[in-house]
Computed example of a mutant assay.
Amino acid sequence: MVTMVGRESDAKTLIKNLIQLEHDAIAAYDAVIEKLDDPSRAEKIRSFRSDHTQHLEELNRLAGTEHAYNPGDGSMKSMLTTGKLAFADMTGGDGAILKAMSTNETDTVTAYRNASENSTAPEAARPFFEKALADEERHKAWMDNAAAAA
């Protein structure tokens, strides 16, 4: 599923949607950590979850400075992201779980790439969007490699 997050036509909606995306990502990480058989993979996922928590903190700060609506918890999409993880767990162990997580990371990579290129984004937020994009690309690359090795 391709995300349109990051292409919003105003900064407030952009920030709101990124907050929802981060809540959904954190919910997916919470769902997967306990499902992984390999403790070292689970620890790596915990560190990636910490990145998402930091992203959320920065987005919450941006919401305050930009007077954007902060939606609080995740969206209905979190049921989709966590649901496919549960299915992956039933069908294929760590490899399938990490492949499912990689598809979630595709959305966050796309969202932050879009946000970093979005002309309506606050100029002061661009360095954060670029850092978050680099984090998400790193997460996705690790998940792809770990899934292939599992």
Rank of each mutant, 00 (worst) to 15 (best):
L80I: 13
Q54H: 11
E66C: 12
D38M: 02
R126C: 05
D94S: 08
T103Q: 14
I19W: 00
T108H: 00
A132E: 09
R41W: 12
G92A: 08
K35M: 09
T65Q: 13
E123A: 09
A115W: 01
E136F: 02
E43P: 05
A42E: 10
K84T: 12
A63R: 03
Y29F: 06
K84F: 11
D51C: 02
A141L: 14
Q20Y: 01
E123M: 07
P122C: 05
A148Y: 12
A27R: 03
V2I: 10
E57S: 10
K140Q: 14
P71W: 07
W142D: 04
N145K: 13
M1D: 07
F48W: 06
M101S: 02
L36C: 14
M4S: 10
A149E: 15
I97G: 05
A27V: 07
K35F: 04
K99S: 15
G72V: 02
E57A: 13
Y112A: 06
D89C: 08
A100D: 14
M76Y: 09
K77R: 15
W142K: 07
L59T: 11
A11C: 13
A150N: 09
T106G: 12
H139F: 01
H52S: 15
R126Y: 14
G95K: 10
R61H: 09
E123P: 02
T108N: 13
M101P: 00
L80S: 15
R49S: 04
F87P: 00
A11E: 12
H55V: 00
P39H: 11
L80E: 14
H23E: 12
A132R: 04
I33C: 06
T103C: 01
A63G: 11
E57W: 05
A111F: 01
G6Y: 03
T65G: 08
K35W: 05
P39W: 10
G64T: 07
M1T: 00
R61D: 10
S102E: 15
I33G: 12
T108L: 03
A146F: 05
